[in-house]
Amino acid sequence: MAETRLIYDPYGAQAHADPYPIYRRLRDEAPLYHNPDRGFWAVSRYDDVAMVSRDWERFTVTKGVDIDNAGDLLGPGFFLAQDPPVHGKMRAVVKQAFGLRTIRDLTEAGIRREAEALVADIAVRPEADLAVDLAWLLPSRAMGVLLGFPREDADRLRDLGIAFMRREVDQTVPPASSEEAGMALMEYFEVIIDERRRAPRDDLLSAIATATIDGVPLAGEAPGMALLIYVGGFENVGCMLTNALYWLALHPDQRTWLAANPDGLPAAIEEVLRFDGPQQSFKRTTTQAVELHGRRVPAGAPVYVLYGAANRDERKFPDADRFDVHRTGGRQLSFGDGIHHCLGAPMARLEGQIVLETVLRRMPHYELTGEPELAPSHAVRGFLTMPVAPACSPAAA
């Protein structure tokens, strides 16, 4: 049977349910793809994705990085949508807080306490939801530890963060419920930033609230900067954790090996990020005409950078469609590349290792009891629900 005409639509149901077959066709048939109906171009091979991510002079972020421009809500503090020199100056405000040593000093003990408490509660239940009760709750609390907002606010912020992430199939703009959640999040951070300006503490929120750039205090940028850090850490880690728990449930032999060999967890996290990463795509816009794969992309054209496709590129990763926690070699691109590489990547990896180590120690034979619900999103990939039986016997698992 002849294959259908190649059509890639990131807003459609096909891309939501399982984008990887169409990613393969893009890499093989149209490494530079153009969708004239939606008005975008897309790159899908590893080397092209890495090149576009690094080349900020020809592929700018200043026209937005989200394919539906959801980041516009964050206003001038959204430094992910800034190129040098502004990007570097704004990024420097928070860069030190995201250094690996600082993260371990400030947050590791708190993340471990939260993970132990959440998993201990789940492990004794006959049924639980690893997404709702663990994977989405822990990163919200962890961001509270890092940023410095009250622990009792974490559950509400989690709910708002999930609502902000929601999208509707075939719609190229966020739904009203997403915008309302985003405005509620922004209002929260505006209030707490104002509180920190009046009474600074030893936390990242105070550092943002009192920061200066070229001697000028941050004004309207500060709440959006804080919200960017929260949403980035919450969305990416929540998706990463659900994906890890899901794929390990489907590969019990690899899960059993990891439970017995926790030193393999760092490599396992990298494989989860490669195989089914949280960030599937970002957008860039050409600043000039660009020649690629024998075609000409005009200036001012949106280019979708498909990290999810690049991470399954057989040219970079042998047997790329196989999940293998023992895989070595090849650097996944789920956290981006170049000057816009994710600042929170060390913290995300730390959270992933702590959660998996805790789950595999306390309930190594958990079993899915129903089909998890995918998060409704065009750009990130994870699960909103994951029903499990936590304490299955080894034979059942």
Results as ranks from 00 to 15, higher is better:
residue 2 A to K: 15
residue 2 A to E: 13
residue 5 R to Y: 02
residue 8 Y to D: 04
residue 11 Y to T: 08
residue 14 Q to V: 10
residue 19 P to A: 06
residue 20 Y to D: 03
residue 21 P to I: 00
residue 23 Y to H: 14
residue 24 R to I: 06
residue 27 R to W: 11
residue 33 Y to E: 08
residue 34 H to D: 04
residue 35 N to A: 14
residue 42 A to T: 05
residue 44 S to G: 02
residue 45 R to M: 06
residue 46 Y to V: 00
residue 47 D to W: 08
residue 47 D to N: 10
residue 50 A to S: 13
residue 53 S to G: 12
residue 53 S to E: 14
residue 55 D to G: 07
residue 55 D to C: 10
residue 57 E to S: 11
residue 59 F to G: 02
residue 61 V to K: 01
residue 64 G to H: 04
residue 66 D to E: 11
residue 68 D to E: 11
residue 69 N to H: 15
residue 69 N to C: 09
residue 76 P to L: 10
residue 78 F to A: 10
residue 78 F to W: 12
residue 85 P to G: 10
residue 91 R to V: 06
residue 91 R to M: 00
residue 98 F to Q: 04
residue 98 F to E: 05
residue 101 R to D: 13
residue 105 D to V: 01
residue 108 E to K: 10
residue 134 L to M: 09
residue 136 W to L: 07
residue 137 L to M: 08
residue 137 L to I: 02
residue 139 P to H: 03
residue 140 S to T: 04
residue 140 S to D: 08
residue 145 V to T: 08
residue 150 P to V: 09
residue 151 R to M: 11
residue 152 E to Q: 12
residue 158 R to E: 11
residue 164 F to E: 08
residue 165 M to G: 00
residue 174 P to M: 06
residue 175 P to N: 02
residue 191 V to A: 15
residue 193 I to T: 15
residue 196 R to G: 12
residue 199 A to Y: 09
residue 206 S to R: 05
residue 220 G to A: 14
residue 221 E to L: 06
residue 222 A to Q: 09
residue 222 A to M: 10
residue 229 I to S: 01
residue 229 I to V: 15
residue 238 G to I: 03
residue 238 G to R: 00
residue 240 M to P: 03
residue 241 L to I: 13
residue 242 T to V: 11
residue 242 T to A: 11
residue 252 P to L: 07
residue 254 Q to M: 07
residue 256 T to Y: 01
residue 260 A to D: 12
residue 261 N to E: 10
residue 264 G to Y: 03
residue 265 L to M: 04
residue 270 E to W: 00
residue 273 L to V: 13
residue 277 G to W: 05
residue 280 Q to I: 10
residue 283 K to I: 03
residue 284 R to D: 03
residue 284 R to E: 02
residue 286 T to C: 04
residue 288 Q to A: 15
residue 293 H to N: 13
residue 295 R to F: 07
residue 295 R to L: 13
residue 296 R to T: 15
residue 302 P to A: 05
residue 310 A to C: 04
residue 312 R to A: 15
residue 312 R to P: 04
residue 314 E to Q: 13
residue 323 F to K: 05
residue 325 V to H: 05
residue 329 G to H: 09
residue 330 G to A: 04
residue 333 L to E: 01
residue 339 I to T: 11
residue 347 M to Y: 06
residue 357 E to F: 00
residue 359 V to D: 02
residue 365 H to Y: 13
residue 378 H to Q: 03
residue 379 A to H: 12
residue 382 G to L: 12
residue 383 F to Y: 15
residue 383 F to M: 14
residue 387 P to E: 07
residue 387 P to N: 09
residue 388 V to D: 09
residue 391 A to P: 04
residue 395 A to L: 13
